[in-house]
Design a protein around this nucleic acid. Structure first.
Lengths: 249, 249
DNA sequence: CTTGACTTTGACGTTACGTCAGGGCGTATG
DNA sequence: CATACGCCCTGACGTAACGTCAAAGTCAAG
């Protein structure tokens, strides 16, 4: 099946001008061009267009997108998985914005005070990373020592039990993933996680929240959890955040 | 408390250049300017900046934002509520994108076929409106006649019962709103809604889905449901969509 | 064979900034 | 007191990703 510019435009939602522009900058060529000069697109070009739109949605520039798509070892399936994770992150990011709205409304109605900085929570992505860095500095190194100390205090049998418990938690988490991060199943597992961590160091809500941040920012954690399930890092982050919110207010 | 450009920039995530630009185009003036020419922002200007960022996030152009914010009867609280609803819509929109990714992955792995058009579900907002229009044309006028005919066939007592049933459904929906649109409570109510509508005309899944679209696009419905709860239109849409997905595959 | 919808290629305009250059302000330090 | 250093200012030009015409060729239907 072949499509003209107009058809592709109406199908994908981009303008005809955009398609011609993408052709000109060598980002997306039609499958072939007729002797009359008309552009004809096939399914392969449509899939490429879909990729372009995903990257664009995620804020990439067109030349970056071109560079990525033109890599000889570019893997569509892997790219889609990455898009999925990124969009998932944006989803939680949207939740932050919604919370910021609610808190601003409450604040304007005089129900509580609010730091000026909190007016912008959920907007900037760079600030996000900054915040995560802070968290790691704050709760990372201090607690590592403590955790090693505690771990060494357990007997080998206890250690096995604890390890099994930890694995059970993350398996249960994975199973709860499509019930939503606010689901009772997920929340129960967050509590279990907090108890589990208690074996290593005192896990306050504040620390727990910090851990949630680390789980999506620290590559090691991300890699580990993604092997269990591609969305697990984001899911854990969201579930923990929600849990902490519930138990704070 | 007063802030300089740099402070506001780091706080809000926008660049210093952007702040100066917003000043120049009269979108956001600092609270006052020192004799040295320095810009100083206070909380009022921060709140205005927050508004600007919300509108910008939603795709408004700066001159449009200026026009809106400069309306003498502009109501911050109402605006925040509107932002909330719009962001909620975007949230469901993101879910569409995630679904499109999953379906594309499955398709590429040869697990099922896929219409070319389905590659782009969730991308364009204009197409969304187009689709909704189509839906209304398709299921709107045809079924209106039918519905009137059926309604007239009921006795006054029956009509009261049916009306009460309808109200009960939407009240229950409102109560289920924070349990998520996939929650059993919400899904039960979608089924109840389908049965309720059955009093007027045969409510197939296809029609039900069409109704879900109408609930967020037709101003009358939106207004009615928003009076019950500001998020109800979007919530209904999402819950119905999810319900139909579950019962289709 | 004409009409009207569709296509093409330029060329210029626009939005929302980024990125310098060139120069003042402010305060901590030698 | 000078000077260094970071922050502030104002132009001015550059850029990305198109939008918006204009002028002209193409194609299917009536």
């Amino acid at each position: 099946m072949e499509y003209t510019v107009k058809q592709v435009a109406s199908m994908s939602g981009v303008s005809e001008r955009t398609l011609r522009y993408y052709d000109k900058i060598d980002l997306l060529h039609p499958a072939h061009v007729g002797t009359n000069g008309y552009r004809y697109y096939d399914q392969t070009s449509l899939l490429r267009l879909q990729q372009i739109l995903f990257f664009r949605e995620l804020g990439f520039r067109l030349n970056e997108i071109k560079a990525i798509l033109d890599q000889p070892d570019f893997d569509v399936l892997q790219a889609l998985a990455t898009h999925r994770a990124a969009l998932q992150r944006r989803l939680y990011h949207l939740h932050d914005l919604l919370r910021t709205i609610d808190r601003t409304i409450d604040y304007l109605q005089g129900e509580h005070s609010m730091k000026d900085e909190a007016l912008f929570e959920g907007f900037s992505p760079e600030k996000q990373a900054e915040y995560e860095q802070e968290m790691r500095d704050k709760y990372g190194s201090e607690t590592v020592d403590e955790s090693v100390r505690r771990w060494n205090n357990y007997s080998p049998e206890e250690r096995d039990t604890i390890k099994a418990q930890g694995e059970a938690v993350f398996r249960a988490m994975r199973d709860a993933i499509n019930e939503g991060h606010t689901s009772p199943a997920a929340q129960t597992q967050v509590r279990a996680l907090q108890q589990h961590i208690g074996h290593f160091y005192e896990c306050t809500l504040e620390i727990l929240r910090g851990l949630g941040e680390v789980y999506v920012s620290h590559p090691d954690f991300v890699a580990t959890f993604e092997r269990i399930h591609p969305d697990l890092p984001n899911f854990l982050h969201a579930a923990i955040d929600y849990y902490c919110d519930q138990h704070t207010e």
